[in-house]
Simulated assay, not measured.
Amino acid sequence: MTKPTFTDFSQAIITQLERDITAYITDKHLPEPLHSACLYAMTNGGKRVRPLLVASSFATVSQVINQQNFYKNIGKIDSVRLSMLAVELLHGYSLVHDDLPCMDDDDLRRGRPTTHIKFGEATALLAGDVLQNLAFETFCEQIFAESWRIGNNLLTTFTPRARRMIMGQMLDLNGEQKNLTQAELEAIHRDKTGALIEASVLMGGICGQANEQQLNALEIFSKNIGLAFQVQDDILDVTADTEQLGKPAHSDEKLDKSTYVKLLGVEQAKDYAQSLFDTAKNAVIAEFGNENYLIDLANWLWARQK
């Protein structure tokens, strides 16, 4: 069987993930309006980049992408399915809190009112708290679902990178209204944006029982993709409009944040993003060849407009 297209693969993964998100939150019997706020925050048409990285990394390492219907059945593998759920729940929590008036103070997320605009600040704050907690609850299930070793490895990969994401958010706030160097800017975003992307790629590899050499290649890929993703965001913030982005354009300028565009200019920032994508893809190609979903995903990310 020919390798299914990335479009087919990603659509199947996202369909499974969105069913799991709704079922998982509903199963917790949260009181209203907390239940509705959590569902609202998590079912708002996001790109699902991080779960797709988990699935693509697993498919690349396990080398079973050509088996009939594998891309449809990947959601039946508990460790993969729960890892996808965990990274997206943690990402969802971070967005709910990022949008709050005490943080970035945004009214629009993915073309809809942000959670605190829809439900109020107190409910949004609690929704973020619950989503973070649920992300870690999934590992209680993973540790016993397939094997203690895989579950433990997933937890020890995920936990420090969740902490790093929050550290990066603090550094980002500290950097407002300051002229940061490129090294300082990268230190922020290797944590704030990059840490969860690293976790996603590495957890997919762990689920596929990657060896040390393979994990090293995945780590190089993830570190470079994570930084490239942030450089792209900085570019899109000034080159796309609010309708394209689904959130307010020029929001970084409003908060007087240091960005790669502010530091390098648009064209040089694009060149830098391209070099990061190339480094990421070369690491994967050297280890796994160029016919895999991580390369497809990198190409898709490079072409994104929001």
Rank of each mutant, 00 (worst) to 15 (best):
T7F: 01
S10K: 10
I13C: 15
I14Y: 00
L17K: 08
R19N: 12
I21F: 02
A23I: 03
I25E: 06
I25L: 09
D27P: 00
L30V: 11
L34K: 02
L34M: 08
H35V: 02
Y40F: 10
A41K: 02
G46M: 08
V49N: 00
P51A: 08
L52Q: 04
V54K: 00
A55W: 02
A55C: 10
A59Y: 02
A59S: 14
V61H: 09
S62Y: 03
S62N: 14
V64T: 14
I65T: 09
Q67T: 15
N69D: 15
N69K: 12
N69Q: 14
Y71L: 08
Y71I: 12
N73E: 15
G75I: 04
G75H: 11
K76T: 14
I77R: 01
I77A: 06
D78Q: 13
D78M: 07
S79P: 00
S79R: 02
S79Q: 10
L82W: 04
L82P: 00
S83R: 05
S83G: 08
V87F: 01
E88Q: 09
H91A: 13
Y93F: 15
P101V: 13
C102F: 06
M103N: 09
M103D: 05
D106G: 02
D107V: 11
R112F: 10
P113I: 11
H116R: 03
H116N: 13
K118P: 06
G120H: 02
E121I: 13
A122L: 11
A122Y: 04
T123P: 00
L125M: 13
G128F: 01
D129I: 11
E141G: 00
E146D: 15
E146L: 02
W148Q: 12
W148G: 00
G151V: 08
T156L: 05
R163Q: 14
R164A: 15
M165D: 03
I166N: 05
M167N: 10
G168P: 01
G168V: 07
M170V: 14
M170G: 03
L173V: 12
N174C: 12
L180V: 11
T181S: 15
E186V: 09
D191I: 07
T193Y: 03
S200G: 04
V201K: 01
G204S: 11
C207W: 05
G208C: 06
Q209M: 04
A210L: 03
E212D: 13
Q214N: 03
N216A: 14
L218R: 01
E219S: 13
S222K: 06
G226Q: 10
G226K: 04
Q230W: 03
V231K: 05
V231A: 04
D237W: 05
V238W: 01
E243M: 05
E243H: 07
Q244I: 09
G246F: 07
P248N: 11
H250F: 14
H250K: 15
D252E: 08
L255K: 15
D256G: 00
K257H: 08
V261I: 10
G265F: 08
V266N: 01
Q268V: 09
K270A: 07
K270Q: 15
K270T: 14
D271Q: 14
A273H: 01
Q274A: 15
L276D: 05
L276H: 06
T279I: 13
F288C: 03
G289E: 13
G289K: 07
N292Y: 05
Y293I: 08
L294R: 06
A298K: 02
N299Q: 14
N299L: 10
A303M: 13
R304S: 06
R304F: 07
Q305M: 03
Q305N: 13
K306I: 02
K306W: 07
